[in-house]
Simulated assay, not measured.
Amino acid sequence: MKYAYEFYRDHLDMLRIKLPGEIELFADFIEDIPTEQKADEYIKKVENVLNGLYQDFDIQLNATSVLIKKDMTVLEHLFTYEEHYENEMETEQFKELILIWKGKILDRFQRNKN
């Protein structure tokens, strides 16, 4: 993964992901992926765009919308009134981020033993 990331537990002991400022809004999208099956579904959509089956594909979740294009994926935060409401990253990196999250989904709701 080109971008730095780290996992942490919030005050409710829920596993979260922290991303660098230029792509930080993608965390809101990624953290809304609830199951490995849903992650696989999104990965398939990304691959369909990368392979030219779709010109682009839009996914809307709770507070975010991502527009997946062949080279870049643009995330728009739907419920923020700040100037900074869009981020973009390379589509290949977006796919990799989903894969990374998929590997952590089972850990998400487990309580930290520390």
Rank of each mutant, 00 (worst) to 15 (best):
D58E: 14
A4K: 03
N48L: 01
Q110V: 09
R111L: 11
D32F: 05
E31N: 02
D107V: 00
K38C: 03
Q93N: 10
I33F: 08
D107C: 09
V49H: 04
E41G: 12
W101A: 11
I100Y: 03
F57R: 02
I23E: 02
K38W: 01
Y85L: 07
G103E: 14
L15Q: 01
N62I: 10
I33V: 13
N48V: 02
D40Y: 05
L106A: 15
N51Y: 09
L12S: 08
I98P: 00
I105A: 02
W101G: 04
D71N: 01
K18N: 06
L75G: 10
W101Y: 10
E76T: 12
I30R: 00
P20I: 06
Q93F: 06
H77F: 09
E82L: 08
E92N: 11
N112M: 08
D40L: 12
A63P: 03
M1Q: 09
I23S: 05
E83D: 15
L106M: 04
L106S: 13
K113M: 11
E96H: 04
M14V: 09
K45A: 06
M14T: 04
I98R: 00
I98C: 02
Q37R: 15
G52D: 14
N48Y: 08
I59N: 03
D32K: 12
M14F: 10
Y81D: 03
I23L: 07
D28N: 06
T64I: 00
I100G: 01
N51W: 14
F7W: 06
D10Y: 06
P34H: 06
P34L: 06
A27N: 04
E36W: 01
K95F: 12
T73Y: 00
K113L: 10
L12V: 14
E22L: 04
R111G: 13
Y42M: 08
T73D: 00
D56H: 05
T80H: 07
T64Y: 07
K113C: 00
K18R: 15
H84T: 10
D107Y: 07
E31F: 09
K18Q: 11
E88N: 12
A4W: 07
T80G: 02
I43Y: 05
